[in-house]
């Protein structure tokens, strides 16, 4: 089988760009993990990553047969907070039954390849302080503290 550009086949799992037809399965996977349905959010996220666009937004899925077992979404952002262009990872999700087998790593590496191909040299993300699992995942990929601190305050 010929592999389309930007698509890699590994042990039956194919990492490929998401299409609008994947949205329902992405919503279902996210809801199964987080318990929160966010159909409008994911529909918008997937739609914004569809061609034609400027190849600065990437939404990849890990497909095994008809199932989507994981996804990752990222975007190249430039000059916000004075930061040179950097690839941001906004979301990563792997079906619990498929975890600890390297699928998250494949998704991470795939989106990093997209960022590299687009000419950026750093990848960045943000994690909830109490989410040890996702924090440990990004650390295991080699990520460390970056040059920014997040600040916030209540407005009421």
């Amino acid at each position: 089988m010929q592999t389309a550009p930007g698509v890699s086949a590994l042990d039956g799992i194919r990492i490929r760009p998401a299409t609008a037809a994947d949205t329902g399965r992405i919503v279902a996977l996210d809801q199964a993990v987080t318990g929160l349905p966010k159909p409008d959010y994911w529909q918008d996220m997937v739609a914004r990553c569809q061609p034609p666009q400027d190849r600065r937004r990437f939404f990849l899925v890990a497909e095994d047969g008809d199932a989507i077992d994981g996804f990752i979404a990222g975007e190249i952002r430039s000059w916000e907070f004075g930061s040179p262009p950097v690839g941001w990872i906004f979301a990563v999700q792997v079906r619990p039954a498929r975890r600890v087998r390297g699928l998250g790593t494949r998704l991470f590496e795939a989106v990093c390849d997209c960022f590299r191909d687009a000419g950026v040299h750093h990848v960045r993300t943000m994690v909830a302080r109490d989410n040890t699992m996702i924090h440990a995942f990004f650390r295991s990929q080699g990520m460390t503290a970056g040059p920014f601190l997040e600040l916030e305050m209540r407005l009421d």
Partner: peptide, 15 residues
């Protein structure tokens, strides 16, 4: 604490 909790020995050795 979250930083130290998120770094496994394997991750530390890779670092």
């Amino acid at each position: 604490v979250p930083t130290l909790q998120s770094i496994s020995l394997a991750t530390m050795l890779k670092l």
